[in-house]
Design a binder for these strands. Structure first.
Lengths: 332, 332
DNA sequence: GTGAAAGCGCTAACAC
DNA sequence: GTGTTAGCGCTTTCAC
């Protein structure tokens, strides 16, 4: 049995409106009314019906989050950061996975919109015009991937600079053949990291050899395949930059399978720092991203928009920095 | 601008009721009416208001999930399994983290209830009577942790047997001093694994030495501390069973810090298989759990309850099995 | 087959 | 300070 405000009002001997004001904390209500209303509510075990409330207030206190896959530790950490930032304001996260599939993303967004979420946070693989359509009707924050031409807030990591630092570091260690294992460049962050890699090569006067680039996909298995493809070449690179944690995973596995020593045979620098990077031998040199902060910042931005902030879109870029451990060969 | 059914009806030249039937796929509507209604809906970019729909249908097509921390890969995988199982039926997951804190869990549940989720999936740290109160008013499935005396479905792993197998394996390898690093036994699954550990010792005629038991907490750092405490003892165990992935992480780190070789100095078996367990050296022997299936099963059970299934609570126990790799010393 | 009307549980004017 | 009333956008009888 679930009770309504009407029941509470009846039990408390008040009108429904007074009970609402007494419990809702808005409008006027005498101390006596508050007392009686909360008493009745407690006795009945009354939980306000958020659905009815949402229908009139036009706000559900929910926020939709669409990521590629919540099992990806990167997204999990971002989701956590987001949920924490939202919780303080009494908002909850509605979660959906897109598997990096534009159609699935669109479906998820549509479902979320029909739930009338107050706002949307997307690690999107969608197209700019679709996203603009969405942004026009609901607060939107792009997470991890800013998409050119989209009129919405975004919180991203400085992928270009991060990738550039990683590759420059490898160059400074004397490497001339530096390979990259990357997810598909249709993912904005992957494209930026690829660009940073290319830029660093060019700055070092190194050729942009297509034979050094291996494009995987959005799973660990894809990373594994792509890394192997690169490492099995006769002219395999002496150093590898893996541009996300799945690619890094795949490379570590492939290196081990092929019996290649790190950093002796191949030096390795990954993008994104996970718990296990210090557990493997040697510990991994990585570009570390402020992941939880990414989510938290998205949350704060979204809350501001929900609160009516109409200022021009903000593009926040968080710095990523290189953590030098053993796999690059800089330290023993 | 967001349009309502009334707008659609007006544009289509139909009554609101007919438009509703035409679009909603319930009741009768002529092909012509369906045609005109969907036409108008498309032209206006109409998205049905799920909130209003929920108010009358008394179902929101959302399911609440409360876990300790979505960043824990175990929960992330379960969440994914759940979301996938639900998606087919058009349900979405509302996510909340409890940090294994009963008060935070209660708050999260209350928030979810006020959102009128159709059902709840909990990896709970709560008390039986609180959970029974919840179960009385809403479909509830306990995930990963069944709690004695709770009248609700549960989907758990056979933790006792899993832990027993792990320890028996260590015993069969000749170990007599087998330590355990466990999360707090107030967490049901931890208690069961502890019980399985003790049972295996007893069956092997080994004493139950309190000096072999180290209780951590619900973070990697806790696991690290607890593992170190055990490994720094003068009479440290020759083998370690770590009863969840955070404890395993902590143990691997502590072993490395202390310069202990695995399995030479200390053999290691962990509970829960993560991606990185094959990346460390030696690869970890673990008890593997069907994590995604855990979530998916919870989803199916919950959907059945939401659909009106009134049969007695089902307790589903999924098997966990030992994967022997290098860290236990059985293979080289 | 379609339309008019009631009502889901709540908030917000507006009287009193 | 409190009660009455309208209405949020939808579904669902019940006439026609």
């Amino acid at each position: 049995m679930t009770f309504t405000l009407k029941d509470v009002a009846r039990v408390a001997g008040l009108s429904q409106a007074t009970a609402a004001r007494a419990l809702g904390g808005y409008g006027y209500a005498s101390p006596d009314a508050v007392e009686r209303a909360s008493d009745a509510a407690r006795r009945l075990g009354y939980t306000p019906n958020g659905v009815a409330r949402a229908l009139v207030s036009r706000t559900t206190r929910t926020v939709g989050l669409v990521v590629g896959d919540i099992e990806n530790p990167f997204f999990a950490a971002a989701a956590r950061g987001l949920a924490d930032a939202l919780e303080g304001e009494g908002h909850t996260v509605l979660l959906a996975n897109s598997d990096e599939h534009p159609a699935a993303e669109q479906r998820a967004i549509e479902a979320l919109r029909s739930h009338r979420v107050d706002g949307l946070v997307l690690a999107s693989v969608g197209r700019a015009d679709d996203l603009n359509t969405i942004a026009a009707s609901s607060p939107l924050v792009l997470l991890d991937r800013s998409i050119r031409g989209v009129h919405a807030d975004s919180v991203t990591v400085d992928n270009r600079a991060g990738a550039r630092h990683a590759v420059e570091h490898l160059v400074s260690l004397g490497h001339r053949r530096i390979g990259i294992v990357s997810d598909h460049p249709s993912i904005a962050s992957s494209a930026e990291r690829l660009a940073g890699y290319r830029r660093a090569l060019k700055d070092a006067g190194l050729p942009d050899d297509p034979g050094l680039v291996s494009i995987g996909g959005s799973t660990r298995e894809d990373g594994h395949r792509a890394a192997r493809a690169l490492l099995e070449r006769a002219d395999r690179p002496t150093a590898l930059f893996t541009s996300n944690n799945f690619m890094t995973y795949g490379a570590v596995l492939a290196l081990r399978e092929l019996g290649l020593s790190v950093p002796g045979d191949v030096a390795l620098v990954g993008f994104d720092d996970l718990d296990w990077t210090v557990l493997v031998d040697p510990p991994l040199t990585v570009v570390s991203q402020p992941v939880a902060e990414l989510g938290a910042t998205a949350g704060r931005l979204l809350l501001a928009r929900i609160g009516g902030d109409e200022s021009p879109p903000r593009r926040i870029r968080l710095p990523a920095h290189l953590i030098v451990r053993g796999s690059c060969g800089a330290v023993r």
